[in-house]
Every structure is written in structure tokens, then in C-alpha cells.
Computed example of a mutant assay.
Amino acid sequence: MIATMERVEIIDTAEALAEMVVNSEVAEMYRHFLYIMNTNRETQRKIKRFVQLKERFEEVQRFGRYHPDYKQVNTDVRLAKREMDMDEHVANFKRAEVELQNVLDEISVLIGHSVSNSVKVATGNPFFQTSSCGSGCGSGGSCGCSA
């Protein structure tokens, strides 16, 4: 591969962008809440309990509702998941994770559209979809979509 000045500039710009994301307030909050979640004993107890019950559920799931413990294990795993999700530290981490993902999605869309507006960028977030309507809008294309 031949290194041209244009490629070197692109790599430098990409590294600078990555550095800005890593040093951003959103990324700092993500790391902060991750640390708190990972160091809090009660939160870790809830996570560990959920993981253990989830593994048990996966064993029982092979037989489905015909397994004698299916209903109890299913109930236990749902309660443990709810307990874990309602933990303040887990909730704060998940919010920070979503905020960071939104920043990364926004950057991906901006980069993709700087190449061409027809570039499809997989963000997993319907907010970033460029079409004003879904497929099969029923308007015969009068809304501007390609359906």
C-alpha cells in the first residue's frame, strides 16, 4: 500500500478525532460510572447473582417449559435482572453508555455523509435514519422516499 499525503492526513485526523472522543466529558462520565459500578460491592453482588441465574436459565432453557424448574428459574432470573437494572450504579452506567453511543453514532453519520448522502451508516438508533418514512409508506413516493 502506498502512503500518500492524503492518507496520512486522514489517519492523523482520525486519530485526533478519536483522542477528542476519549477525552470528552461524555467518555469521562462513562469511565467514572463504570468504575463506580465495578467497585461497589452491593452492585457487584447483584450482577453476579444475575449472571449465575442467567446461566442456570440457559441450562433449563434447553428443555423449555417442560423442565420441572422452568417456571421458578424464569421468575428468579427476571427478578434478579430487575434488581440489577434498578441499582443506582447500573442505571447511571447504562445512561452514560447510551450517551457515549449516541456521540459515536452521530460521528459515524457525519463521516458517512461527508463521503456521500447515500452512504448507509449502521447506528442501531432510528433517530439517525435519513429517510423521512419507513418502507411501504403507502403514499406512492409523494413523500420523497424511494418506496
Rank of each mutant, 00 (worst) to 15 (best):
S108C: 08
S116F: 07
Q101T: 11
N102L: 05
R65C: 05
Y66K: 15
E59F: 07
L53G: 02
I11P: 01
A27D: 05
L17P: 00
R41H: 14
M5A: 13
E19Q: 15
G140H: 02
V119S: 04
S142A: 09
N92D: 06
T13I: 09
R95K: 14
G112K: 01
V90H: 06
T4Q: 11
Q101C: 10
V8P: 01
D105G: 12
F63D: 08
L34Y: 11
G64C: 03
L17S: 00
Y66V: 03
L34D: 01
S116E: 12
E88V: 10
K54F: 09
L110T: 09
N38H: 15
M1A: 14
R95M: 03
G112M: 02
T75Q: 14
V119R: 02
V109Y: 04
S116G: 07
S131C: 03
S132Y: 00
I107Q: 01
V98Q: 12
K81H: 12
E55A: 15
G140E: 04
Y66T: 07
A96Q: 04
E9N: 14
T130V: 09
C137I: 00
S135T: 11
R45F: 06
V21H: 02
S132W: 00
R49P: 00
G144W: 00
F50E: 02
S142D: 03
M29K: 15
E99K: 14
N40K: 13
R65E: 09
G138R: 04
E6L: 11
M20K: 15
R45G: 03
H67I: 01
D12Y: 06
R7L: 14
R7D: 14
V8C: 04
C137P: 04
Y35T: 12
G144Q: 02
G64S: 01
Y66M: 11
H67N: 07
S135C: 06
A96N: 01
N117E: 13
S131H: 05
I36A: 15
S131E: 11
S139I: 09
N23F: 10
S132H: 07
R62T: 12
S108N: 10
A147Q: 08
T75H: 13
C143P: 00
V22A: 12
I47M: 10
N102C: 04
I36D: 08
E88H: 10
L104S: 03
G124K: 03
K94L: 11
E6W: 04
Y30P: 00
F128W: 03
H89S: 13
I2Q: 13
C133N: 04
T43Y: 02
T75W: 08
N117L: 05
R7Y: 14
S132C: 10
T4G: 08
L100E: 00
V90N: 08
L17D: 00
D76M: 03
P126F: 01
Q72I: 08
V60Y: 03
R78A: 09
D87H: 02
G134D: 06
V77Y: 01
R45E: 10
R45C: 06
T130R: 10
Y66H: 15
R78D: 05
A14I: 07
R31M: 11
